[in-house]
Design a protein around this nucleic acid. Structure first.
Lengths: 151, 151
DNA sequence: AACCTTTTGATTGCACACAATTAAATTTTC
DNA sequence: GAAAATTTAATTGTGTGCAATCAAAAGGTT
C-alpha cells in the first residue's frame, strides 16, 4: 500500500477559537469605546494617542511619534495635518536637519489635557475589568509585541 | 484656608503602560504578519477571515458575516465585491427576502483552503508563543470582548 | 387593504493604515 | 571634497472601518 502523498491536514481553526481574531475584534471595540468618550473633545483615538505623547514630551519629530505609536508617515502626515488645522499642534522643519519635521503642542492642544483627565478611568469602567487584571493582561501582551516588532 | 476647588488629578497614564494601546498595536502587528503569509494567496487579513467562515459554512448572508466578524455592511460590501470580482464568491439576493444578500463560496475560493492550511501554524511561530499561552490569553480576552459588545 | 415599524444592505463621506515610490538632506566612504 | 549610501517625510494608491443616511422589503396593526 503506497503512502498517501497528500495526507489530510488538520482543519483550520474556527474563527471563534482564534486569538488573532480576538485581538483584532477587541482592538476595534476598544477604539469604538474611546470614540464615544472622545467625541466631546472632537478627536479620534489615534489623534488622542498623539496628544498623550505631546502632553508628556511637548515636542517630537514625526519619526519619533512613529516609533512610539508604530505608525508610519503615510498614516501620521495626514493625521497631523488635520490636527494642525485645528490649532492643536504646529509642524515645522528642524533647523539642524531639514528632513525632520518637529511636531509641537500648542496651547489649544494643551488645553485638551484637562478635559481628557477622566477618560482612562471611564474607559476602564467601559471595559469592565479590574486594574489588576489590566496590568496582568498588559504584561502578557508585551512579549508578543516585542517578538513581532523585530520582524 | 479654603478647600481647593480643582485638586490636581493623577497624571494621564503613559502610553507604554496602557493596555488599550497594546491591543491596538498588537492587532496591527498581527495583521501585518498575516499579510506576509497571505500574499501568496493575494488576500488581505479581513478577506481571509471571510474565507475562514465560508470554508466552514458554504453560504452566509452579509448580516451573518457581519455578526460573526463584528463588521458592518459599510466595511463588508466593498470587501465582498472585491472578492466577487476575483471569482472567489458569489453575491445574490435571497429569494424569500429580497433585502438579504447571500454570499456563497465558489470553487476558486474553495481552492484557496488547501493553500491556507499552513497559515495558522506559521503564524503561531511568527508570534512566538506556545499553544498553551495562546489558549490562556484567548480565554482572558473573551470577557472583555463580551463586555464591550453589549454596549 | 392601507399604514406603521422594523429589518437589511447599500451608499456616502471621512479617517485611518500601510506598501511602494519619490525627493531632499545628511552621513559615510573613499 | 566628491560620490555613494542612508535617513527622513511626503506622496500615491489601495483597502479597510465606521457613522450617518437612504431605500427597499417584510411583518405587524388596525
Amino acid at each position: 500500500m503506497p503512502t498517501n502523498a497528500f495526507p489530510p491536514l488538520p482543519p483550520l481553526p474556527r474563527l471563534d477559537n482564534q486569538l488573532c481574531f480576538s485581538v483584532y475584534a477587541l482592538s476595534r471595540l476598544i477604539t469604538k469605546a474611546y470614540q464615544k468618550l472622545l467625541e466631546g473633545l472632537d478627536v479620534t483615538y489615534p489623534q488622542y494617542l498623539v496628544l498623550l505623547l505631546l502632553w508628556e514630551h511637548e515636542a517630537l519629530t514625526v519619526k519619533a511619534l512613529g516609533n512610539k505609536l508604530l505608525l508610519d508617515s503615510g498614516t501620521l502626515t495626514p493625521l497631523l495635518k488635520r490636527m494642525e488645522q485645528r490649532g492643536w499642534l504646529s509642524r515645522r522643519r528642524a533647523a539642524h536637519d531639514e528632513r525632520s519635521v518637529i511636531i509641537t503642542i500648542l496651547p489649544a492642544g494643551r488645553a485638551l489635557e484637562l478635559q481628557a483627565r477622566e477618560i482612562p478611568l471611564k474607559l476602564s469602567v467601559c471595559i469592565g475589568i479590574t486594574p489588576a487584571q489590566v496590568s496582568d493582561l498588559h504584561q502578557q501582551l508585551q512579549p508578543l509585541i516585542k517578538h513581532l516588532i523585530t520582524k
